[in-house]
Design a protein around this nucleic acid. Sequence first.
DNA 1: TTGTAGGCGTTATCAT
DNA 2: ATGATAACGCCTACAA
Lengths: 325, 325
Amino acid sequence: MTRIKEVAALAGVSTATVSRVLNGKSVSPGMESAVRRAVAELGYTPNRTARSLRRQHSELIALVLPDIENPFFTSLARGVEDVARAAGLSVVLCNTDEDVDTQEHYLRIADDENMAGVILAPAGPSALLARLAERHRAVVVVDRAVPDDVDQVLFDNVDLGRRAAQALVDRGHRRVACITGPRATPTAKARADGWREALHEKGLPAPDDLLVYANYRVDGGETAMAQLLAAPEPPEAVLATNNLVGVGALRVLAAGDGPHAQLGIIGDLPFVTSPIDDTFLLQLHPREMGLMAARMLVDRIRGEAGPAQRVIQPSRPVMLGAPAS
Amino acid sequence: MTRIKEVAALAGVSTATVSRVLNGKSVSPGMESAVRRAVAELGYTPNRTARSLRRQHSELIALVLPDIENPFFTSLARGVEDVARAAGLSVVLCNTDEDVDTQEHYLRIADDENMAGVILAPAGPSALLARLAERHRAVVVVDRAVPDDVDQVLFDNVDLGRRAAQALVDRGHRRVACITGPRATPTAKARADGWREALHEKGLPAPDDLLVYANYRVDGGETAMAQLLAAPEPPEAVLATNNLVGVGALRVLAAGDGPHAQLGIIGDLPFVTSPIDDTFLLQLHPREMGLMAARMLVDRIRGEAGPAQRVIQPSRPVMLGAPAS
DNA sequence: TTGTAGGCGTTATCAT
DNA sequence: ATGATAACGCCTACAA
């Protein structure tokens, strides 16, 4: 454990001078080189705990995610890292496992560790978030909106649902079902609302039996898809409103022992193995979302940001495989 | 920002008493309740930076991973979290992106932030790791062996390769190919060595054209599998030595426009969509590996661990779908 | 049991 | 430009 004091002693200067060299303040060339030599010789790096305590902020940012196993979020994380590292900040990831208590726990840690900022993909409402923002801590929320007055990078979820459903209708389908997440999940509800609006705009019915509230994971998609296909009058097309239920739905179709249906999925599928013919994808570009969120956070940390803003992230429609026969 | 001083003032005691209450030292009941009331009223939580500086260690552990987008590692992370959280430690994840410089960067942060311990899945050799261990920092290495004298939780990679290849040979195949990672990746090489040994033990040849060194990701698996199947004499079976190249290989097979081959994969496939008939899986249970590593780390942090040990993690063979026709 | 005070390692202020 | 020193917030001897 080498301390600044030892560096100072070896270089024959005061600790203040060492500190100045390390922080790029003006120091005479002779002393500077002596200090740098001593630093190199001892392999000294400043103790970040002491530095954070003194400066009242560290060079860490916390990226607090609800589900580290969802490729959407890991891809978002990569985007955040790229921007943050380039700005001299290090990213630590915290997994809330969709649990609000765990979320509060990690937000509090970020605060108590004097981290420079937090990017949060909320698992649910947070009391701490507002407090952090009030104290002028840098905070950016991604993916799921919160009522607080903080920077947010979001999708227009109703629009996503509408456009995805429209794409399916435009391919000639009249019975278009929707698999979405739990009623209590706002993005799931919004995307389903978009689906409903699209059908109505096209003059099509959107009966309750065409809308399935599944758990928002792979097994939820499987169950829901199986249920839809087993109905007396199965849908001609199915919209899966996130990547995981999309994987589940795709699995059921790929098993191939039931009626077919055209699939639309909101999100991306990094690890699919089946040939996905005849599937409509509305890609979300989570990495870009991470890049944007990190840029906003860096600006805020540097004090270059104005009032809190909400940015809507674009999405991209892609048709995979052969057109519907 | 509420400080211990304010709590002390509100409770009418000294800061020392507040600190004692917070850390479970003996305090008279009257004072204790007064302190607890004040803490609750102010919503006080101790500043972890100051605490870490004073105690010389924080309650954070760093989980340093080479690829946050690989489900193997996210699953491992979940295991680590479960044990660590139960032990009162919080986990922060750091992504090295398979880059040794980034790895050293995060290891240094873990050290300079006085973190309680580090679990590292190495991207390559680390000079800092040995220094951390020497300074009696808690360190556990997972998945990829390092020469240093630290706790390690590993697979027997040669054995994995051997058993997986044996399983394919035992199903009657004589031309069994192998897709593995880059020559410079020790686990990739070891698993390929196991494959070679198995073939030799069965009296089968293991010619160079049956062994493909791919990049260890999905696209590497695709390219390698396509190459193998396009050969004049395509293999009857193919061993993919990790989950990602397994996905790539499976994709090529599922596309179905070439000759077929039976597939063996070392690892798990959380997001596959195709029906995987006729595939041999040697499952690795990364979550269990994370549980074990975290338990060892906690023991070491608590000073309850003896000399550094290496634990070999078991794997499980599974045959999916119908037997080879 | 409780309070006082020193120190963890760094940075920043204030003299020089 | 440089050095001595206070302060960041907390914990823990030591004293009472």
